[in-house]
Design a protein around this nucleic acid. Structure first.
Lengths: 181, 181
DNA sequence: TCTGGCCTACCTACTAGTAGGTAGGGATGG
DNA sequence: CCATCCCTACCTACTAGTAGGTAGGCCAGA
């Protein structure tokens, strides 16, 4: 595993469990048993690290969305929720996008744009699913775009609640309502 | 206005706009044009400040919930959503409970218990509304407790999305779906 | 005279970031 | 075949600044 990737892996997990402000280059250095200056070799500033983190996360998430090949809308939606649920782990971490959104003011415009892009991509994907759901009648709804907003909000909020409780099943409890109408 | 209250007001706004980790006692002192040591006089540690913040926020929020006197379930729910929407401001801040949930690991057990209590109180209130909605038929639903989870998750997620976009209307877009079934 | 509220002046620990150096590997040219 | 050169990836040692927190003093009002 190359060092840069390992650094990103650790930084992502720290950002998602404790928040981006709550870990330092020194923490990363310790985790990889290296010196702080070497972390700076890979990411010159913490802002650069933030940008690399959210960009990689967005690309990786969207790539996984693209792999969902279920033909029917309801199954596609179930797969989406399962993906979101997976990012929650055992209730000890958040989706990086959610974590970053909470402390948005700490980031520069480039990171803000990535966060916004993550939401836009997710909303587009979900709106397509709800539009399909109107056609194949597996997800009856009057407004695909509106349903997409509600669905994304529900998933993100369910993560927050599960994280607050430290219990992943809270996520299941909240998201179960999506497919019941 | 007494100093302690003003300190709490400023700290709350900072925590909700930038995150609890992202402001310091020095920031608070500057905001009130006083010295850092004087802030410590009112809140001996930052953990004590966190606890005072979340406790006051929870009490104040629940007091405002108790003031909702609409008799019909749908109107009660609308009032709840309006209250949540109000905490969003112009899209530049989060509900303190949401903000704290994101960096849960930074807090001690007492704060964790308050966050959990806030969620529990909210869920109870919402479950009562959805139960009433079954009876007065203004909010048809099969599972009041489940609907409460979904509703709270949707409101919290809608806040995150609105905050990420910096546009409060995103909240309206997402929460509009709740009352449409 | 005592207390609440604030102050100055300090502490230790840690933050992000920098300056400058080095071990070792691959390429290039004589 | 080997010396030179530049490269990546790391290091030690440091900077300036900020974090939370504390000791002890001043002063106004009850």
């Amino acid at each position: 595993m190359d060092t840069r990737t390992t650094l990103l892996d650790h930084a992502e997990m720290l950002a998602r469990t404790r928040g981006f402000e709550a870990f330092s280059f020194a923490d990363l250095a310790t985790a990889l048993d290296m010196r702080k200056a070497s972390v700076h070799y890979h990411f010159s500033t913490k802002a650069a690290l933030a940008q690399a983190l959210i960009r990689r996360y967005r690309e990786s998430f969207m790539a996984r969305l693209a792999l969902i090949d279920a033909p029917e809308a309801d199954d596609r939606l179930r797969a989406y929720i399962a993906l979101y649920r997976e990012t929650l782990g055992s209730g000890d971490r958040l989706c990086l996008c959610v974590a970053f959104s909470c402390s948005r003011d700490s980031f520069d415009a480039a990171v803000g744009a990535e966060i916004h892009g993550f939401h836009r991509d997710s909303l587009n994907w979900l709106a397509d699913v709800f539009a399909l759901g109107q056609i194949d009648e597996t997800l009856p709804n009057a407004d695909p775009a509106g349903a997409a907003y509600a669905c994304l909000a529900l998933c993100e909020g369910a993560q927050i609640m599960a994280r607050a409780a430290g219990e992943a099943h809270v996520f299941d409890r909240a998201t179960a309502q999506i497919l019941k109408g």
